[in-house]
């Protein structure tokens, strides 16, 4: 292939209908309380890992549900499983089990 001194850029758009939603389906099946998330960000706001890394529980689960899963393995690896997020969640989402289910789905356990 020829080089012209510039690159064709990757499209950042979330192509929802082309993405793989099976991982999200697995997690939601095993932890349906995640359906109740209202994206308030209480989880990430109180998360010790979010303070020192790019990991945010809120954003991670949202991207997963859009099928954007390429950084998921790295993201969940940041979680300290401290459980503060489950304590602050106003909707009662079992955030720790969400992390656990993602780890199971990604064969991280």
């Amino acid at each position: 292939m020829n080089s012209f001194g510039f690159e064709i850029q990757k499209d950042n758009t979330i192509e929802y209908d082309k993405n793989d939603l099976s991982l999200a389906a697995f997690v939601l099946k095993h932890e349906p309380s995640l359906y109740n998330c209202i994206q308030c960000g209480s989880c990430s706001g109180s998360c010790p890992a979010s303070a020192i890394s790019s990991y945010q529980f809120r954003k991670m689960q949202l991207l997963m549900r859009r099928g954007e899963i390429k950084n998921l393995r790295e993201d969940v690896a940041h979680c300290l499983l401290c459980g503060k997020c489950i304590l602050v969640c106003p909707r009662g989402v079992n955030t720790r089990n969400v992390i656990r289910q993602i780890r199971i789905a990604l064969n991280m356990n």
Partner: peptide
Amino acid sequence: DDTLAGSPIKVR
């Protein structure tokens, strides 16, 4: 724009 994801989104 999926503002909470921080990216544009296309949905059919």
